[in-house]
């Protein structure tokens, strides 16, 4: 069993919204997950972990949010600073750095190192756990783009992360009532004709 990238993106947008992001930011989170998974990186798991941490978190989440920093860097259009500060789930920053520097940029956090560009995400060093570091200081450096492996499906191993995201996505769905069941869709006439 596998899932399409479109399903993953659409789930990520809903989950990010259900997890408290405004719609426009949730769309960016969906873009980030799609981009990472297209290079075989666990974007779904990173977003799930980020949303679980953020849920009810007493700290000011904005300063640690990889999507907030990523979109701010893209919007400002002034390049990528060397010191990117401390972030939750730094993996989620990578798609935005690639958008800022399509020709290539090196990213490092914890024990992880990668080259990101418009050609995708290429791992240079670090274990699977390192790439999913919960919180780490993130830095950037110059690099030349490398072509990433192109992945077109979400494998069976993505099921757990998708289930975690579904719990957030469900918060965007309104509970059904008998009234909304009939009036909301506007049906109710016979179809046996």
């Amino acid at each position: 069993m596998s899932w399409s990238l479109g399903e993953a993106k659409s789930l990520a947008v809903k989950a990010a919204r259900g997890g408290g992001m405004p719609w426009g930011m949730a769309e960016e989170a969906g873009f980030a997950v799609h981009w990472l998974q297209s290079s075989g990186m666990p974007g779904l798991a990173a977003l799930a972990a980020y949303l679980e941490w953020r849920d009810g978190c007493p700290r000011d989440v904005h300063d640690l949010c990889p999507v907030a920093l990523g979109t701010a860097l893209m919007d400002a259009g002034r390049g990528v600073p060397e010191n990117l500060g401390t972030l939750r789930q730094p993996l989620l920053l990578a798609p935005f750095i690639a958008a800022c520097s399509p020709a290539g940029m090196r990213l490092r956090w914890g024990g992880a190192e990668a080259i990101v560009s418009e050609a995708g995400f290429v791992r240079k060093a670090g274990s699977a756990d390192a790439f999913l570091a919960a919180e780490a200081v993130c830095t950037s450096g110059r690099a030349v783009a490398e072509v990433a492996e192109a992945v077109t499906r979400i494998p069976e191993s993505g099921a757990q992360a998708m289930d975690r995201l579904k719990r957030f996505a469900e918060r965007t769905y309104a509970p059904a009532t008998e009234a909304s069941r009939l009036s909301g869709a506007g049906a109710g006439t016979t179809d046996n004709d």
């Binding site: 469900e170 965007t172 769905y173 309104a174 009532t177 009234a179 909304s180 069941r181 909301g184």
Partner: peptide, 26 residues
């Protein structure tokens, strides 16, 4: 506009009759 929990489909409500604003779609 909202999405129903039951079938995950877009639906339309009367804003002032049903307390669905937290679920409003953009």
């Amino acid at each position: 506009w909202y999405v129903s929990e039951e079938k995950l489909e877009p639906r339309l409500a009367e804003r002032f009759d049903e307390p669905l604003e937290p679920y409003e779609q953009p």
